[in-house]
Amino acid sequence: MVDVVGYRREIPGTQPAHLFPDYKSTVKRAPGKPLIQIPHTLTEVTGPLFGHNKLGPNDADLTKQCAGAPIGERMILSGRVLDGDGKPVPNTLVELWQCNSAGKYHHPVDTHDAPVDPNFTGAGRALTNDKGEYRFVTIRPGEYPWGNHYNAWRPAHIHLSLFGPSYLTRLVTQMYFPGDPLLPLDPIFNCIPDEAARNRLICNFDIETTIPQTALGYKFDIVLRGRAATPMVD
């Protein structure tokens, strides 16, 4: 017999539903039948762990991945990855992707009439340190139009993908910028019903991490799903 300590279930309103018709692509892709709730077993409380061996030297600095400097406003994105009890999550992989400063992704399906920046891949990754901190150097992404509804524009955002310690802590989110006038109009941002939870997707400008003459600092803390109780540690 193996007893496992499970994870806390979703708090209503703080996560999106699968179906959110304002975001049209959910209509044919969301499950139509109720999900089956399962107990947390050894399968769910374990998960993949990645180490430094996966990372290259400039993976966390998107301004240094190509021959020249990318166009746009440099920024430092840093923050902590925390568990549901507020404890740092060390040595966990954070994957990042975004469009360039003109609002164009380095991707074949992006048909937006905006220039590709040959010096910007838009992809990064980092491991958190032993205090759960991560740090990227990048370019502030632009806004761009999309086909969801008439005159639809995505607010500036950065995609982040995290693993945490288990299969259940997997998280993909988007981080937004303070004061963006497109936020109230964006169905993806607004899919989270709870206003406080929704607003936690907006980063904070931070003068402390701003580098004089060089780059503005933004802070974004990420909270992963928490344990139902504290597991025994050897």
């Binding site: 992707w97 991707h107 992809a123 899919c191 936690r200 909270v223 799903r225």
Partner: peptide
């Protein structure tokens, strides 16, 4: 203190940029 987990958002159509590595 119990913290509320960060909200999930779609990977969108350009997911390959960040994930296929």
């Amino acid at each position: 203190t119990k913290l509320v987990p960060t909200g999930s958002q779609t990977v969108g159509p350009y997911l390959h940029v960040g994930l296929t590595w």
